[in-house]
Design a binder for these strands. Structure first.
Lengths: 206, 206
DNA sequence: TTACATTATTTTGTATACAATTTATCTATA
DNA sequence: TATAGATAAATTGTATACAAAATAATGTAA
């Protein structure tokens, strides 16, 4: 049996990322390699790599935990609309029976699941659709935005955005009925509403 | 006066990248940190960082210089069509007088410039259009693909693809005449032709 | 006091040594 | 000969020390 201890870089990356995502490291907070290294019990070397990866994902900028502005949020969602809209179109054309039934499951769980289950199902819903594009570049681009997206998806689900599940269902139906144009359009609208909801929340909080 | 010697990471990154782009490091070739370090006269530490960055850009995969397949090429161009198509639309709506005249210049140089000038002008043409989106995420996503795109743009210009300049001119006209739909459509068609040309070249060479 | 220059201090960049892991080579056995 | 296992070689991962650079603090002249 293989123990496969995770390497220090990976551990560091995941720990720091999670600290950012759950708020232990707050927006705007300064990151220093040495401090983190001491904190996590590794040397600076793997920490550096981890930070670089987080910078790559946009969670850290200039050694500071990112504080996404309205504009950032809009930008991210604009890219998502383009790429995921296209993906939804692909899903309507190419998705397999398996993929369809998994999508259906996600919609169901969205209606009746627990908080965590809903979180997972929603993420999976989008993920499967993106997969159907069969385009690794596209998938990679979306994945890179995933952490920041997660930051907001949490908000959306936590505050229980109205019609979210219904919209997923509509998208699913369009995909199942093989209506590419409609699937794309619905996905774009769906993301636009997510964006508006997020923006509204952010601006009412500050 | 400030001397600002470039740091070893940056130097390494640029040197390795250029070696890949101009063929000194060939597709499929194995990269080892130590060998590169000895070659470039740095220690392994900055080399590692440089390699990681090249991996992010997709020029190195699994410690090997990337050998883009047809599928990779198609994937990249699909993403470009989505993002640059959208950008062309933005350009038709938002571009400034300055941006327009620079675009016009690029088209002109494309008609009468030297090989190097044409290369630069073509790159600039696309870059300006992408800028008009005002979306840093989108710009960043395109820039990350830039190295690999460059690899192919060289081919396209070198073999003097027919109608390339004419297509740029058409796109420019649509932008200047504030026709967003048309600009987007033309940009997509333009990229599709680039893709076909590249694919054709690649497959006739091997 | 303000502004500037100078000095400390912190933080990052680089080199190097060693550990862990992966990959290649070799040998014994079926 | 092929294959599994062991051993050696190459390569990567991590820790640490020191150099360079950036940032903060201090003092001094206007």
């Amino acid at each position: 049996m293989k123990m496969d201890k995770k390497k220090a870089v990976l551990q560091s990356y995941e720990m720091v990322r999670d600290k950012i995502l759950n708020g232990q490291l707050q927006s705007g907070e300064k990151i220093t390699e040495e401090k983190l290294a001491a904190d996590l019990g590794f040397s600076r070397t793997p920490i550096r790599d981890a930070i670089k990866r987080l910078e790559y994902e946009g969670l850290i900028i200039n050694k500071k935990v990112v504080k996404p502005t309205d504009k950032d949020l809009r930008n991210i969602f604009q890219v998502r609309m383009l790429l995921e809209g296209y993906s939804a179109r692909c899903a309507a054309i190419y998705s397999s029976a398996d993929q369809l039934s998994t999508l259906a499951e996600c919609v169901e769980i969205g209606k009746s699941g627990s908080y965590d289950e809903i979180m997972d199902a929603n993420e999976k819903f989008h993920q499967i659709i993106v997969q159907t594009s069969g385009n690794d570049r596209l998938i990679d681009t979306i994945n890179r935005m995933q952490s920041i997206i997660y930051l907001f998806r949490k908000t959306v689900v936590f505050y229980n955005r109205p019609f979210l599940i219904e919209e997923h269902e509509d998208i699913f139906n369009a995909i199942r009925d093989r209506q590419p144009e409609r699937a794309e359009e619905l996905m774009k609208q769906h993301l636009e509403k997510d964006l508006d909801f997020c923006l509204h929340l952010i601006n009412s909080q500050n």
